[in-house]
């Protein structure tokens, strides 16, 4: 029996992207596509939201794919080894994605977003939908889960910025290709960096196709209590943690989201610099 929040497996996709499979039998049963968790790596750590990339009720585990960008995620990359445990892991949080009866769906994942869109692609497929997967990376070396994703898709399009795999270009070109071949797309789900989701929304808007994005703004509690994750959707202010994280892409104010994601940029830079200084000191 694994300890609470014990990391039972880990896979490094590149020098910045890593997968953690964590023991939490109860959450593995409860989790649904589109939901997220909040993680605290140690007792002085911050609470960071991460969208579930997978969950397996038989293994009693949930899976996260993390990109080492700031202090916390780099520290996790260094410290989260198999056999260690997270300080806190709470979830599943947020409203599950609505996996309706859409017949033809495009599931778009950009970079790290490939991981959280996977459970949705799988759910559409299990519901009998025709799933077109579009995934994008900067280059082939950063690509992960190609085969896993392909196995739940009827069509599969890979885009890379440098053309080292699939189409040379960004995911919106993949979406356009799929739209050119299918006039009957019911729904598009897009998860990735905010700028990518913004352009996905603009790509589908002229076609009037329902498009859903998953937002991951700065959060503290993740239970609707702090209001830090508020986002503009249409003319309303919504809390991503309890009203989302999924929202209608054509109503989301992405510029507002991107501005709010930079709220703590100065502190984030300080924390990262200090941590890297400490790392160098401990090596030197």
């Amino acid at each position: 029996m694994a300890a609470p929040f014990e990391i039972v497996s880990r896979e490094d996709f590149s020098n910045v992207t890593y997968l953690l499979e964590i023991s939490h039998p109860r959450m593995a049963q409860a989790a649904k596509p589109g939901q997220f968790v909040i993680v605290m790596e140690h007792d002085h750590g911050e609470r960071i939201p991460l969208t579930l990339a997978d969950f397996d009720s038989e293994r009693g585990t949930v899976t996260l794919v993390v990109q080492a960008v700031g202090k916390t995620t780099r520290e996790m990359q260094a410290r989260c080894q198999v056999g260690t445990s997270l300080h806190a892991l709470v979830g599943p949080m947020g409203a599950p994605s609505e996996i309706g009866n859409a017949r033809r769906v495009i599931c778009v994942g950009g970079g790290l977003g490939v991981a959280p869109v996977y459970p949705q692609a799988r759910a559409y497929k299990q519901n009998g939908g025709y799933v077109i997967g579009v995934i994008g990376f900067r280059s082939k070396e950063l690509m992960f889960w190609g085969d896993k994703f392909r196995s739940v898709c009827d069509e599969f399009i890979v885009c890379t910025d440098d053309g080292s795999e699939g189409i040379k270009g960004v995911v919106t070109q993949g979406i356009e290709r799929a739209l050119a071949e299918h006039s009957d797309i019911d729904e598009v789900v897009a998860i990735g960096p905010p700028i990518m989701m913004k352009f996905c929304a603009e790509t589908t808007r002229p076609h009037g196709i329902k498009t859903v994005v998953s937002l991951n703004p700065v959060m503290v509690d993740g239970t609707g209590m702090c209001g830090g994750c508020r986002v503009k959707v249409g003319d309303r202010i919504r809390f991503a943690c309890v009203d989302g994280p999924d929202f209608d892409a054509h109503a989301v104010d992405f510029d507002d989201l991107m501005a709010r994601l930079r709220r703590f940029a100065a502190s984030e830079a300080t924390a990262l610099e200090r941590w890297q200084g400490d790392c160098r000191a401990s090596i030197g």
């Binding site: 609470r47 209590m225 702090c226 209001g227 924390a271």
Partner: peptide
């Protein structure tokens, strides 16, 4: 612009007042 809940939670529960000893920022 933030709620008092966010300010207080960052400061009290998450110890942002001791940033960067604690990781949670407040600015």
């Amino acid at each position: 612009v933030l709620s008092a809940n966010e300010l207080l939670t960052r400061c009290n529960l998450m110890h942002a007042r001791d940033f960067p000893e604690y990781d949670t920022p407040l600015q």
